[in-house]
Amino acid sequence: MKRRTREQLAARVAADINEGNYVNLGIGLPTLVANYLPKDREIFLHSENGLLGMGPAPAPGDEDPDLINASKQPVTLLTGGCYFHHGDSFTMMRGGHLDICVLGAFQVSVTGDLANWHTGGADAIPAVGGAMDLAVGAKRVFVMMEHQTKTGESKIVERCTYPLTGIGCVARVYTDLAVIDVGRDGMVVREMVEGLTFEELQRLTAAPLTHCVN
């Protein structure tokens, strides 16, 4: 089978973002999605630090320390974009105004629980940022992650063992192996990479899957 690269995974997520969607891309892997948004669609990128209509990184030399994204990297503002304070920004996030947020994850459970902020390790310094607000607030939460950990364990689980970010919040999971919807019927596989059988995917996944490729 051919696993999706990080770039191919980002392109796959980007293909599901529609004209007019208001979208927040979480820090880490999801920020790659911005590079693959279809050029013929007007899509509004939101950044939690008070920015709607976020554009790409500036040309070298044009960086402005007052214009950054949630990862604190320099960005630009598209024509028509705007700035706002943190109260308004989290009203957008928590209040159900964002169509989609894309988050990374340590684990996703079969019921859509998300764990992505803390390993729970005794010496780990926790940091949560806006992850919990996005998890409860966006209309649809997409998770984008590798299917397995570096040591080969499934990141899709019956029950998360890492501390939770949100309960039952994940709508869809994009991995390097498959696209899986999460809903009342449990986890439904919509797409698999070339050369992968459903049986093999199930063997690599620590939660029951249903096969329903359109």
């Binding site: 939690e48 943190h86 109260g87 920004s89 989290f90 996030m93 928590r94 926790p126 940091a127 949560v128 940022g129 806006g130 992850a131 919990m132 607000d133 607030g137």
Partner: peptide
């Protein structure tokens, strides 16, 4: 530690 939106 406070989730960012709860802090706001």
């Amino acid at each position: 530690l406070v989730p960012q939106g709860n802090l706001a």
